[in-house]
């Protein structure tokens, strides 16, 4: 395998990782601040993609589509938080799992009812289409480079939000002691709605960005949901930094594993069985990674408490 191919695959892993980060960040925030397991987070990812596809279809503008994804997912998130989620904060994890499992059913079939059973069209705008040549002669899609840049920008933005703003202080306070900030006069239910909507908006935004190079269809959020859970558990639940590191680890492991494992087995096996064993193992790789991390560090890489 040439160096150029390897660098290209590392970029691919990075890109996959930063997109995972957008989804995982919301999930980990919601868990950190409210202590809620939200299985329906993937549905908000889907809402963002469908909103973007609809607006892009109507207006032809990708920027408007992205704005719509943020708005629609945030609105859906706020609505769900007010109607359902806020009744779950005081419940145990089991009730949360069941309620948000029910929300997945409602979101998925509701979306199918509104948009039909066929995948929607959403494509990257012309000004981001096509490849660019990077130093060293690597041809790489401009859109994917943009995704990496956007992902890193959002991560930086989140860092600023949490470390420098009033909302960030409240979020951090909420993570360490929920009763205390209520006692200090912070409107806790408003804070929770905002945090949940923020997490939803990030997921919806990721859905729209990724939807442009994937299939916008019902159920697209569920694989992402499972991966996002893997990410936040590896990183340590509640930690944004952990979510970022975890995303990149998962992105790189998954991408490079799929490429390198079959090559590795080819060193001492015939081609057909090496491909077969390698591909089988690579699909299990991130779960193996997660199990190893948790066995070594039971609260994830950056997890504060059990």
């Amino acid at each position: 395998m040439s160096l150029i191919l390897l660098i290209e695959q590392i970029l691919n892993g990075l890109q996959f990782g930063v997109m995972l980060f957008l989804t995982a960040a919301g999930l980990t925030l919601v868990f950190g601040v409210m202590g809620l397991i939200n299985l329906a987070h993937g549905s908000l990812f889907m809402v963002g993609a469908f909103a973007a596809a609809t607006v892009a279809g109507a207006t032809g503008s990708f920027v408007l589509a992205l704005a719509a994804s943020l708005a629609a997912a945030a609105a859906a998130g706020a609505l769900v938080e007010i109607l359902v989620i806020r009744r779950l904060y005081s419940r145990d994890h089991l009730d949360q799992v069941l309620a948000t499992f029910a929300l997945i059913l409602i979101f998925s079939e509701g979306t199918r009812w509104l948009f039909g059973s066929f995948p929607l069209y959403l494509n990257i705008p012309d000004y981001l289409a096509g490849p660019v040549t990077l130093p060293g002669g690597i041809q790489y899609p401009l859109y994917r480079l943009t995704l990496i840049a956007i992902g890193l920008l959002v991560a930086f933005g989140l860092y600023l939000l949490i470390s420098r703003t009033r909302l960030g202080i409240q979020i951090r306070a909420g993570e360490s002691d929920r009763e205390m900030i209520a006692a200090l006069g912070v409107d806790i239910s408003k804070l929770y709605t905002i945090v949940f909507a923020l997490g939803a908006a990030l997921a919806g935004f990721a859905g729209a960005l990724v939807g442009a190079i994937q299939s916008v269809q019902v159920g697209m959020g569920e694989p992402v949901l499972i991966l996002a859970f893997v990410v936040i558990v590896i990183g340590g639940i509640g930690s944004i930094k952990g979510a970022l590191i975890g995303s990149l680890l998962v992105g790189l492991t998954d991408t490079l594993g799929g490429v390198l494992l079959p090559e590795f087995f080819k060193l001492f096996m015939d081609n057909a069985s090496a491909t077969s064993v390698g591909s089988s193992l690579s699909t299990m790789l991130i779960y193996i990674l997660m199990a190893i991390v948790l066995v070594m560090k039971p609260t994830g890489l950056f997890g504060a408490k059990a």
Partner: peptide
């Protein structure tokens, strides 16, 4: 070796 949500997720894995 883990507990709480980590246990939920590692069994899922």
């Amino acid at each position: 070796r883990t507990a709480g949500v980590y246990f939920i997720m590692i069994t899922l894995a």
